[in-house]
Design a protein around this nucleic acid. Structure first.
Length: 457
RNA sequence: GGUGGAGUGGCCGAGAGGCGAGGCUCGGGACUGCAAAUCCCGCUACACGGGUUCAAAUCCCGUCUCCACCUCCA
């Protein structure tokens, strides 16, 4: 039995999908207006682990992650970067795709773009206007009238009257300052689509309601996103979709942030925590291991020291799996009961990591004693597979240049043979000189019971 | 003002009444020609003040500090 937290009830509860054996998930993806930083990709990793676990538990998962490719910020940035808004959106959509791929985040079942679903948005607005939930004041905007809602702000547990007033000056067409825009009339020079209320473009929020119902229907199992989306984005999605007569999401899951010095990451930090920059320091699999290692609902306090430490810890595990494969040949992963118990409990990855440490120690001890470590290796590989960090996963494929790999292996083996010959004749100065030269190339040599082995740092 | 979250050893990071999660660092040891890798031992923490209880990091009352959201946010 899988138990998961639900933001709406603020409790962990048994997860039962609408249709047994099938799970439908909608995760709010990127607004493609800048390159992804590690906070964005943490969200991707967290929900990827959820998806992998649900699939490993026997479910067929339909996973939707949208791309919001039209909004105020995109238009703003496009102006400053001096390119068409659609070129800017594409540029950063690619940046996100590259980051997801580098971290082995599975491609969504469908990845709809907001601009591809204008028709569905217009239909949704027509429904909301005809049933009185929304209004078009005549200037080309369309607003949802929040005072008329049966239910509002239940996810963030706020009262409408307690909200600080937005204080924007363009309230003139709103019946209530807290009404939010479903659709915005386009200003001169802005992109627009024709509607019954005049040319305009989507407001933020509407696209997710339209796309969720287009791909998952009136009701689906899990809606996910970052904590900061709870209000207003998810509240407004609920408002729109429920006002249109849909049941919408059964369960809400939100990942916590990556913080630096205790504070939420912001763009003012500069470029240093852009995913592709961090990947100059550690490999994709190592960054993923780090971002996935804290519980998804806990803040992850980022530091380069912690990242390096985490990467070293991962290499230790990876090294164990490689050694077992060298000794015993290829093997498959398997899900250990302890790992299942941990993941079933609201994706308790930290507990799972504690088990991995135990298996690792037992496995290394077995190797030292000349016994088989394949039992431990299978459990570890099975766990890493769910965490998306299986070092043998082709997604993290090596150079791809097999000829070069073979040549390098041959050369180093030759050097190691010469070193071994020197050691046999007790010429340790010569042996160490060879090891030092190899080390200066970034290659570590280990002497094992089965002879020397080498690895690239 | 409203809503939500956090404070755990040198560091990271779980747990949510009952025998010290786990990792890293550091110190000691085993192994080794020396290393590396690996293993073993050690380092007894829960913001503060009260209270409940046989037993509190965990529950209750109070206090302090920090963070986030309140129409840009993963």
């Amino acid at each position: 039995m899988i138990r998961l937290y639900d933001t709406a009830t603020r409790e962990v509860s048994e997860f039962k999908s609408i249709e047994p054996g099938k799970v439908s998930i909608y995760v709010c993806g990127a607004t493609v207006q800048a390159a992804p930083h590690i906070g964005h990709i943490r969200s991707g990793v967290n929900f990827d682990i959820l998806r992998r676990w649900l699939e490993a538990s026997g479910n067929q998962v339909t996973f939707i992650r949208n791309v919001t490719d039209i909004d105020d910020k995109i238009l703003h940035k496009a102006f400053h970067e001096e390119m068409p808004w659609w070129a800017l959106a594409m540029k950063y959509e690619r940046a996100f795709s590259d980051a997801y791929k580098a971290l082995n985040v599975m491609a969504p079942t469908y990845e709809p773009r907001a601009t591809g679903h204008i028709t569905q948005m217009i239909e949704l607005m027509e429904k909301l206007i005809s049933n009185g939930a929304a209004y078009a004041p005549g200037n080309g905007d369309v607003y949802l009238e929040v005072r008329k809602l049966k239910r509002y702000l239940t996810l963030s547990n706020q009262k409408l009257d307690d909200l600080q007033s937005a204080g924007d000056s363009e309230d003139t067409f709103k019946r209530d300052p807290r009404d939010f825009a479903l659709w915005k009339a386009s200003k001169p020079g802005e992109p627009s689509w024709p509607t019954p209320w005049g040319p305009g473009r989507p407001g933020w929020h509407l696209e997710c309601s339209a796309m969720a119902s287009a791909y998952l229907g009136d009701e689906f199992d899990i809606h996910g996103g970052g904590l900061d989306l709870i209000f207003p984005h998810h509240e407004n999605e609920i408002a729109q979709s429920e006002a249109a007569g849909q049941k919408f999401a059964r369960r809400w899951m939100h990942n916590a942030w990556v913080t630096t010095s205790g504070e939420k990451m912001s763009k003012s930090l500069g470029n240093s925590l852009i995913v592709m920059e961090v990947l100059k320091r550690v490999r994709g699999i190592e960054l993923r291991w780090y971002l996935g290692s804290a519980h998804y609902r806990s803040m992850l306090e980022f530091s380069f020291e912690a990242l390096d430490e985490s990467a070293r810890a991962f290499r230790r595990i990876e090294n164990f799996l490689i050694r077992v494969r060298e000794i015993e040949g290829d093997f498959q992963g398997e899900i250990a009961p302890e790992f299942k118990a941990a993941l079933d409990d609201d994706l308790a990855v930290p507990q799972a990591l504690a088990h991995i440490s135990e298996w690792l120690r037992a496995g290394n001890t077995a190797i030292s004693a000349g016994k088989s470590a394949v039992r431990e290796a299978k459990k570890i590989r099975g766990a890493l597979n769910i965490l998306g960090c299986d070092p043998f996963d082709p997604a993290f494929g090596e150079s791809g240049n097999k000829k070069l790999d073979k040549a390098v292996d041959g050369l180093i083996t030759l050097l190691l043979e010469q070193r071994e010959a020197a050691r046999v004749r007790k010429d340790f100065a010569a042996a160490d000189a060879i090891r030092d030269r190899i080390a200066s190339m970034g290659i570590t040599v280990e002497d094992t019971a089965n002879g020397a082995r080498w690895s690239v740092e």
